[in-house]
């Protein structure tokens, strides 16, 4: 005769899959004690299931608390990043505004506005013209030292028709060789009646800017601004705007 323990073992074997459902059903139908034990077993499992739910609920609560902490950290991190982004944006904006409003240095203005004029050729067939043309070739080739060597004696010759233009090119060459003071003096020698006086004024202003002599540069630029027909009138206004910021 089977004991209660035997019935339980038989039910366990069925639950683990050792005994087929057909065999189990047949056996249960023919054994009232086993059937009763199986019904009890079902009730036992219900109680155990409720305890398992309690156990699981604790696991879920732990997971939820962990999740909340993690979410709070992520939220905080996002906030910090957002604030950092706002600060970075503000810093960039302030930097830009400051730079926009900050007066540019003289050398920056010089670099922005200085354009080396092209060489000018001469077509007369005489010795002076030959030297002039050679000087211009050297000027075009950016051999400014040679240009000065050729032009300096030429512009001093009595009756040389392009003395003012020559002095302009000597001054420009000196400027390119960074002989700023010499260039300034050279531009000063250009006759006020000459058609190169506007160039002379413009380049004098630029040399002074390059030398960071803003006060003197301003005076010349204001003089240019006062001449509505001066070919550098607009640029002079622009530079003055930058200086005055």
């Amino acid at each position: 005769m089977s004991t209660l323990k035997d019935h339980q073992e038989y039910i366990d074997r069925f639950r683990s899959g050792e005994i087929s459902e057909t065999d189990f059903t047949q056996r249960i139908e023919s054994n009232a004690d086993l059937k009763q034990e199986f019904e009890r077993h079902q009730k036992d499992l219900q109680v155990i299931r409720s305890a398992a739910k309690e156990q699981l609920r604790k696991k879920v609560l732990t997971a939820l608390e962990k999740h909340k902490k993690k979410s709070a950290t992520v939220f905080l991190l996002k906030r910090v990043m957002q604030i950092a982004a706002v600060f970075a944006f503000l810093a960039a904006a302030i930097f830009l505004i400051q730079n926009m409003n900050q007066p540019k240095s003289g050398s920056d203005l010089f670099a922005n506005h200085f354009v080396l004029p092209d060489a000018a050729g001469e077509r007369n067939a005489n010795a002076q013209s030959d030297i002039w043309n050679e000087a211009m070739i050297n000027y075009s080739n950016q051999d400014f030292k040679k240009t000065i060597e050729l032009l300096s004696p030429l512009v001093k010759q009595d009756g040389f028709p392009f003395a003012n233009r020559g002095n302009l090119y000597v001054g420009l060459s000196q400027l390119m060789l960074n002989e700023n003071q010499k260039a300034l003096e050279k531009f000063d020698t250009i006759d006020v009646e000459s058609s190169y006086i506007q160039d002379a004024e413009w380049f004098r202003a630029l040399v002074l800017l390059k030398m960071e002599n803003i006060v003197e540069a301003k005076k010349i630029l204001q003089k240019i601004v006062a001449q509505p027909r001066h070919y550098k009138n607009k640029e002079a206004v622009e530079i003055l705007d930058n200086i005055q910021k």
Binding site: Q46, V47, I48, S50, A51, E54
Partner: peptide, 17 residues
Amino acid sequence: LHQYLDQIGEICKQILL
């Protein structure tokens, strides 16, 4: 239901679970 399991002792409860 789970109170019944709490009354049979911790080891028994764990074994049955």
